[in-house]
């Protein structure tokens, strides 16, 4: 492949390498700092060294022996997975309809879903709090899953309909001519081709649900449904005079891991240009 703007020279390589390093360092220093903090003992927490002078796994041991954290981790995983699954399934169907069909109110639907995506979450906290308390949803899993789906759906509809639009409609017609029912055409032709889009959307929705703090802190009150980001803010040291920063860092590292696993797992499924070769031009 030709390099745009000139040939490959040592100078160019060095400049690019420097730029890459700057970007990576800028992005990763806060993360590494948290990792470093999580391995420090309580008395060296504030010494300002990047590499801990005394290594310890105590912080990790502490958080995993606290039922608070373990419960929260369970809540987080459950709530995020359920919300993701529902949002992606509903989003897939809605996006397919938006990309393929011309139905009355289509523009309104797209407009409203965009509106929801732009709505500041914090403005909904008090009404949601009141509504959920009346309905008995406060401090339950559905109490978090429902608003998560509401906010994740526009995101998933948008991403997915972009993917569906990329799939040539003629493939579906071809499947019909080849003897497929609409269901078979969707399952055997459209769904496999939309898979990268579905996985991408799943990752985005999962990250959104996993990271949410505003709803998690306002719509929960006990460890029955409190997710990790909310639980973290309730962390205290073993005594009230002890700095909980070490445990908080350890917990922060732990909750980052599922995201990384999730992304790495699904990234393998995201093969760019899967539809190339279907149709010419």
């Amino acid at each position: 492949m030709a390099i745009i703007g000139g040939t490959e020279t040592t100078g160019r390589k060095v400049r690019w390498a420097l730029l890459d390093v700057v970007v990576v360092v800028y992005a990763l220093v806060p993360v590494l700092w948290i990792v470093s903090l999580s391995f420090k003992t309580t008395d060296t927490l504030t010494d300002g060294n990047f590499i801990p002078r005394k290594w310890t796994l105590d912080n990790y041991r502490t958080i995993f022996t606290t039922t608070e954290f373990v419960r929260a981790l369970g809540n987080s995983i459950g709530i995020a997975l359920i919300s993701t699954a529902i949002a992606v399934v509903l989003g897939t169907m809605a996006a397919y309809a938006i990309a393929r069909l011309d139905f009355p109110g289509k523009r309104a639907l797209i407009g409203v879903s965009l509106l929801i995506a732009m709505f500041p979450q914090v403005s909904l906290v008090s009404p949601l709090f009141e509504t959920e308390r009346t309905l008995g949803l406060f401090n339950t899993w559905p109490g978090l899953i429902l608003p998560y789906i509401t906010f994740a759906l526009p995101l998933s509809i948008y991403t997915l309909s972009a993917f569906f639009r990329e799939i040539p409609w003629e493939l579906e017609k071809a499947a019909k001519m080849d003897g497929a029912t609409p269901g078979q055409a969707f399952r055997r032709v459209i769904a496999p081709l939309a898979a990268p889009g579905v996985f991408t959307t799943a990752i985005l929705v999962f990250i959104f649900c996993w990271n949410d703090f505003v709803f998690a802190i306002s719509l929960t009150s006990t460890s029955a449904s409190r997710t990790v980001p909310a639980a973290l803010s309730f962390f205290t040291g073993s005594s009230q005079f002890e700095d909980p920063a070490g445990s908080i860092s350890a917990a922060a590292v732990v909750i980052t891991v599922p995201i990384i696993v999730f992304v790495l797992f699904f990234q393998r499924r995201i093969v760019a240009g899967l539809t190339s070769g279907a149709v010419k031009g």
């Binding site: 040539p168 003629e170 493939l171 017609k173 071809a174 499947a175 001519m177 080849d178 032709v189 496999p192 081709l193 899967l274 539809t275 190339s276 070769g277 279907a278 149709v279 010419k280 031009g281």
Partner: peptide, 14 residues
């Protein structure tokens, strides 16, 4: 029971 050949060929890329 009729088969069709499309202008774009419409081959299943996967």
């Amino acid at each position: 029971d009729i088969a069709m050949v499309f202008q774009s060929y419409a081959l299943y890329p996967h």
